[in-house]
Design a protein around this nucleic acid. Sequence first.
DNA 1: ATGCCTCCCCGAGGGAGA
Length: 259
Amino acid sequence: MKIATFNINGIKARAEALPRWLDETQPDIVLLQEIKSVDENFPREMFEERGYNVETHGQKSFNGVAILSKLPLEDVSRGLPGDDEDEQARWIEATVIGKQALRICGLYLPNGNPAPGPKYDYKLAWMERLYRRARDLMASEEVALMAGDYNIIPQAEDAARPDAWREDALFRPESRAAFRKILNLGFTEAFRARTQGPGHYSFWDYQAGAWNKNDGIRIDHFLLTPQAADLMRDCQIDSAVRGHEKPSDHVPVWVDLDL
DNA sequence: ATGCCTCCCCGAGGGAGA
């Protein structure tokens, strides 16, 4: 079973590139971030005609997450628990009904810049809520994963120019510590479980020829519970997608699970 | 690199992104 995460940077802007990528790679499940659309305007037919079930958690202009799945979805839950005042659409989870149940969580973690400041405080508070959800997920002993745009550069090797990110909300020590604290619950960071070393990125800025210079960062991640990690056959970054026509600034990352 | 682009809102130009 191939499961992908993809920050598409706007569903309208990706109305051609996204279905082309789906037809080429045929993922079973896709977690989308930054759909930048309310639920009513999401072009669900585009995916339903390709055999996907569609669940969205949208918002006007900003944020917004969605799940596409060729298998049925149950127990869909929208919004990260822990703050009833939080209006931002950054979390959706559901159970995939196959031979064996799989709990999938799609997330769009706040950027947090400028740091320090209120946006950074929101990022760290959101990560504390994510930690609590992650702890419960771990305790459930389910085959489960949390994937999406974490807006976290885990290590210096995950940036082409780490020194340029030292003070940035994506790489500040507090951000990385909060990410590490979640990993240390016992999650497997899928990509790093299979591939070591520098030069592997999932985001390249539109500006200053970042793609052509391979000036990227790795901020889109899959975290697997032990029960899911046992089933992992592969994990790859589809970096070539960044060179396609009218690309997102992120590329898809996917795992293949023996499910 | 102080956001150099790109996206969204809409119908100009500002906010957000990373």
